[in-house]
Design a protein around this nucleic acid. Sequence first.
DNA 1: AGGCAACATTTGAACGATCAAATGCTGCCG
DNA 2: CGGCAGCATTTGATCGTTCAAATGTTGCCT
Lengths: 362, 362
Amino acid sequence: MTRRLPHPGGSVCLPPVSTPREPVVRMPTVLDVARAAGVSRQTVSNVLNAPGLVREATRERVLTEISRLGYQPHASARRLRTRRSSTLGVRLHEPEDGISGALLDQFLHSLTASADRRGYRVMLFAAADPGDEVAHIRRLSDGADVDAFVLTSTEHGDSRVRWLLDNDVPFITFGRPWGGEDLGLHPWVDVDGRAGTREATLHLLDGGRRRVGFLGWPSPSGTGDDRRLGWEQAVAERGAPGGAGMTGESEDHIGEAEEVTARWLDRDPGLDGLVCASDSLALGASFAAGRAGRALEVIGFDNTPVARALGLSSVEQRTDLVAAAILDLLLDGGGVRTAPEEGWETRLIAPELVLRSGRPGD
Amino acid sequence: MTRRLPHPGGSVCLPPVSTPREPVVRMPTVLDVARAAGVSRQTVSNVLNAPGLVREATRERVLTEISRLGYQPHASARRLRTRRSSTLGVRLHEPEDGISGALLDQFLHSLTASADRRGYRVMLFAAADPGDEVAHIRRLSDGADVDAFVLTSTEHGDSRVRWLLDNDVPFITFGRPWGGEDLGLHPWVDVDGRAGTREATLHLLDGGRRRVGFLGWPSPSGTGDDRRLGWEQAVAERGAPGGAGMTGESEDHIGEAEEVTARWLDRDPGLDGLVCASDSLALGASFAAGRAGRALEVIGFDNTPVARALGLSSVEQRTDLVAAAILDLLLDGGGVRTAPEEGWETRLIAPELVLRSGRPGD
DNA sequence: AGGCAACATTTGAACGATCAAATGCTGCCG
DNA sequence: CGGCAGCATTTGATCGTTCAAATGTTGCCT
C-alpha cells in the first residue's frame, strides 16, 4: 500500500522514502477547463458531448483550453453517471491445440481496431468452464464494466447464450447458431464459408483441373457441411465430377489427412485438385501428394500463419470485415442497440481466396 | 440514439417501440445491502474491503444479504473514488506475418487468467504507429482506465518506453531491454532463451548425436544471440564440435532456412543435430533434411502451433509463468508497485523442452 | 411594449462507492 | 468516578461527470 498513513506513533520519524505517487500534478477536470474558458462545467461537457448546443465562438474557446490544459475526461466518472462503459467484453478461449488458433488472435486485433474507431474498448476475460464464465459475465455486466459481449465459437444449446438472453445482457456472436432454434434471438456475424469453397473450387476448375475433390470433417458439422456445400455448388455449376466419390473425411489433424489423401490418390489416379475445410487438412493432403509425386493443387481454409509460411493457397476469413460488421450490428449512433421487434439483424461476410505458389516462405 | 428526447414537435406521436432499456430492476447498491442488514453503508464497504474491522456476527449478516440480493460493487464508482482501475492495458500488435504470431495469443490468455486470479482485468488497445500508441496510452492512463501497461516486444530506444518513464506511468515489459541503457529503469520479465537452447543441445548430445549445429538469425539480434550462447555453452560443456563452422544464419523464413540447411548438409556429411532459434528455421531445416534423405534431429523454438501440428520438437516459452511473474513484479498487496530506490526487479523464466517424434499430428 | 419561442448557458442534484473523521460503546486503570 | 484506550460503527464529504431543470439572452411578431 503506497498510501500515506496517519502517522503511527513511533518515536523515530523518517521522511517518506520517495514521493509515493501522490497526484504529482492533478489532472485537470471539466471545472478547470470551465474556469479557464470562463464558462460553466456543463458547457464544457456540452462541447464534448453535444457540440450542436454550443455557440461557435464559445466552443472554440473551450476547445482551445481543453488542448492547452491537456484535459482528458475521466472515464470512470463518465461511466458512473451515464451508466455506459463503452467497453466490449470478449471471452478468451483456451489456446486451441489445432493449427488454427491464430484466427482468434487476428480477430481480436481487428475487433480492437474497429472498436477503437467507434470509441469503444475491448476487455478480455478468461474462464475455466461455462459456469465460471457466466460468473464472469455477471460480474462484468453488473459492475457496469462492459456494455455488451462478443462471443466466439458458440455451441448448439449454449448455456452462456441462454443466460445472456434471460438476463437481457446485450451480446453478439461471431459464428451463426447452427442449431436453428436461436436464429432470431441475437445478432450474429459469420463468414460465408460456402462462398469461399465455391470460389476456390471454381478457381481450380477454371484453371484447367478436371477432378477436384473436397476434403472435409466428419459430418455433421455446421461449419464443415456449409463449406462442402460450396464445393458441391461449384462442381454442379461447371458439370464437373462430384458426388460422394469425390469427397473425403478426416478429423482436423495433419497426420490423418495425409493418410486419407494418400489412399484417395491411389484409388483415383485422375484426382488433380482438392479443396479442404481447413489448413490442417490441406497441409496433410499436400504432404501426401508430395510423397506420392502427384501434381495435386490444394486449397485450404482460414489462411493461418502456417499456410502463409508454407506457401499454401487458402481461403481467408476477413476478420477486419467481421469486426466492422459486429460493431455495426451491435451499436447504433449512441450506444448499444436495443432488441428490435422483428428479430435481430445478421450478416454474412464473403471470404477471400488467397493464391500462393506452393513454395515455402512466399 | 436510444435515449428518449424531449419530444420534437411532430404532430404524430407513436408510443416508444420497446421499453428502451430503462433499468428494469435497479441493481442493488451498498445502501440497499446496508438497510437490509441493518447497518450503514460504510460497514458494508468494510466487509468487502477491510473485513478485519467488522465484528464476526455483523460481517456474516452483511454477507448473507449481499448474496441474497445479488449485490455487485459498481466498478466505475469504486474506480472514481479510489482512483484505481484494477485494469492492465495491453497493446495488441499487428498480427505478424511470421509463423510465431501465436505466441502473443497464448501470452494474452495466460495474462488474462493470472490477472483474474488477482482481481485484475486486461484491456486491449491497438495502434497504427508509435505516435498513435502514445496517444492511446495517454487516453487510457489519464482517463484512469488502466493502472499499468504491459508492453510486448519493445525495441532498442523505444519511444513508448521513454514516454512512459517521463510521465510516471507504471509499466512492465515482456522482453528485456537489450540495449543495456534502460536496464534498471523499469521492471521486465523475459524467457531465458539461453537456458532453453542449452537444454536442447545437451539433449541432442546426450542422446548420441555427435555434430550438433546452431541455426540462428543474422547477428546482431538480442534474442537470437542469446539463444546461440546457450548452444555454445552446451557444446563447450560436452567438448562437442563448435565454433563458426557449426553455426548457420538465415532470416526467419522457411524457404531461406531450407536453402541454407541444404548447403550446410552438403558441406558437412556428419551433421546430425540442429538447434534452431525459431520454429520457422527448424521447419525449413527439417524440410531440407527430408529432401536430402538425412537423419537430422531438429529442435525449434517457441513451440508454435505449427510445431505441434507437424510433430516438431521445440523449446516452449512458458507464458503462464511469464504472466504470473509479470503480475508479481507489477503489483504488491494493495495495487501497483511504486518505483524502488535500488532499481526495478526483473525475472527470467526457464523455458521447457518439448520433445516430439517428428510425425505430424502428434 | 408585451409576449413568446428558440437558443445559450448555468445551477443543483444525482451516479455508487470509499475516505476521513466523528461518534458510541466497552472495559480497564488509577 | 473520571479518563482514556481500543474497537465497532456511523456520518459527512468527495471523486468527475452528466442529467434535468432553471435561468438568461436574443429576436421576432402582434
